[in-house]
Amino acid sequence: IKELSPEEVLMKWKPYVQRGVGIKRATKLVEAARKSIGIQIGIQFAKRELDYLLDQYELYKQQVEQLDTELEALVETLPGAKQMMEISGLGSTTIALFFSEVGDITKYSHPQQLVNLAGLSLREHSSGKFKGQTRITKRGRSRLRRALYLAIRPLVAHNPTFKALHRYYTTRSEKPLKKQQSLIALCCKLLRVLFVIGQKQCEFDGSKLVRGLPQKQVLQVA
């Protein structure tokens, strides 16, 4: 482009673009190319700055990897964490976020306390005679709520138990849930599962969650 004239640029455009291009736009392109291409002033220090930025990136990458390794080792020492991470679709990062927001899980006496802490409890938004929609309160730990939501999506995709529950919630004949509503309900279900495992340090048993579901729903996922 730097070596071409505006007329030559316009001729090369014409076979591909019939409208919206003209000699004025071609002239601007050529002028911009001559001012921006082949600049040599300060190139040495620009390369040095780029090298420094790449070095910083590699350093940060190594530090993050080291922190991830230390975090995973630390999480495994928490009560019930190993059993939680054995759930297909859950990783150490999610479990670490869960404990960082919840703290000592033995201090809770009921899983509903965790649901309230995450701001996932339901509330009807009404005023006077107007009856509004029932939505989650969002009065709680937003980071915990976000971690649960990000965790439940791969669980619904890859974990047979949560996949069966999601299919049932969204396709049942009576009061089927929308996909988003089902994900929120499953976030609450996941909290209850983590509560039980944290309290008893027991293995995850998906059959207990799908007990009572129509056999057709379970077989479609199995």
Rank of each mutant, 00 (worst) to 15 (best):
L53I: 12
L155W: 08
R34S: 03
K178Q: 13
L122H: 03
K163A: 15
E76H: 09
L53G: 10
G89P: 05
Y108R: 06
Q40D: 14
K179N: 14
S36Q: 08
G140S: 04
C188A: 02
K178R: 13
H166N: 14
E3C: 09
E86S: 11
T69P: 05
K14C: 09
K216Q: 14
F204A: 15
I39Q: 12
K47G: 00
A32P: 01
E3A: 10
D104G: 03
Q217H: 11
T77N: 12
V218H: 04
S142T: 09
C188M: 02
L150R: 12
D55L: 15
G128A: 03
L117N: 04
R123V: 12
C188T: 02
L155P: 04
K208F: 03
L183N: 06
V21T: 13
R141G: 03
L59C: 04
T69M: 06
Y108M: 00
A33M: 12
K208G: 01
E3W: 06
V156D: 01
Q201F: 06
A73S: 14
A185I: 02
C202E: 13
S5H: 10
V210F: 00
G119E: 07
L29P: 01
I95N: 02
I197M: 02
I136R: 15
I136G: 02
P176Q: 08
E86L: 06
A73F: 00
S127R: 10
L148K: 07
Q66G: 03
Q63S: 10
V30N: 09
E101R: 14
K129I: 00
S109W: 07
Q44D: 11
R146W: 13
D68G: 05
R192P: 05
G91H: 11
V9I: 15
E86K: 12
S173L: 10
G91N: 12
M84Q: 07
T134Q: 08
L29D: 07
C188K: 04
L53H: 14
E101C: 15
L59F: 10
L10Y: 02
L183D: 09
E70C: 09
K107L: 13
P176A: 05
L50A: 13
Y108H: 05
L78K: 08
T170P: 11
G128P: 04
P154L: 11
Q56F: 08
A118Q: 07
D55E: 14
T134Y: 01
L50E: 14
Q18N: 14
Q180E: 14
R123D: 07
K178Y: 10
